[in-house]
Design a protein around this nucleic acid. Structure first.
Length: 192
DNA sequence: GGACCGATGTTCT
DNA sequence: GAACATCGGTCCG
């Protein structure tokens, strides 16, 4: 399979259209000589102002700082005591925005992912904190530049799929915004 | 296969 | 000191 890194200006667009556009693309994680790759099958968009569900809704703080910074960076944060969640920063610098990756489908380096997770089958990557564990993404990867080679996104294959749009998961505000997107029928989606 | 619940640490009030 | 963009177990059907 041929993988081609997407262009940096992709990340300039608004979070909602980026969240949809990221479905079917490939997330690649390099660790020295080993490579892991997975197809993005579920995302959620978060913005700043006008998005009560977002970390960046109230104001800019040290934690959500990355969301306001330049696009095409990773925003990784620690959640609920034992989980890391991975976001891709979008929108121009100064405007808060990010896309949370909620689920992926492993395509390369699967053995390593199983080992990292200690799990089998869809359980390796069918949740936002599951795939970060599988792909060895943690605190050190916060602010990683996705135009470099440690973590990056590649264009997907030419395939047709339906996109389902729902309320985001795990938050109590902003539920009227249907900013969770996933590939219809994909078995790695966390909550169909 | 759905509902409930505890673990656990960082952030912000 | 409460809230929190979750997970994995357990219980009950």
């Amino acid at each position: 399979m041929k993988l081609r890194k997407i262009k940096a200006d992709f990340y300039l667009q608004n979070s909602v259209s980026a969240a949809k556009a990221l479905l079917g693309k490939y997330l690649v994680r390099r660790q020295g000589a080993s490579v892991m790759a997975a197809k993005i099958v579920e995302t959620e968009a978060y913005r700043g102002k006008n998005d009560p569900g977002s970390h960046a809704f109230v104001k800019r703080t040290p934690r959500n700082e990355v969301m306001f910074g330049p696009p095409g960076r990773a925003y990784v944060y620690f959640c609920y005591g034992n989980h890391y969640l991975f976001n891709i920063v979008t929108e121009p610098e100064g405007t808060a925005g990010a896309v949370l990756i909620r689920a992926v489908e492993p395509v390369a380096g699967i053995k390593r992912m199983k080992k990292n997770r200690g799990a089998e089958g869809i359980n390796i990557t069918n949740g936002p904190a599951k795939f970060t564990q599988a792909m060895a993404i943690g605190r050190e990867q916060n602010r990683t530049d996705l135009t470099k080679n440690e973590i990056y996104v590649c264009d997907g294959q030419k395939e047709k799929f339906g996109i389902v749009s729902k309320s985001r998961i795990g938050i109590k505000t902003g539920l009227d915004l249907k900013w969770r997107f996933y590939i219809k029928g994909n078995s790695y989606v966390s909550k169909p």
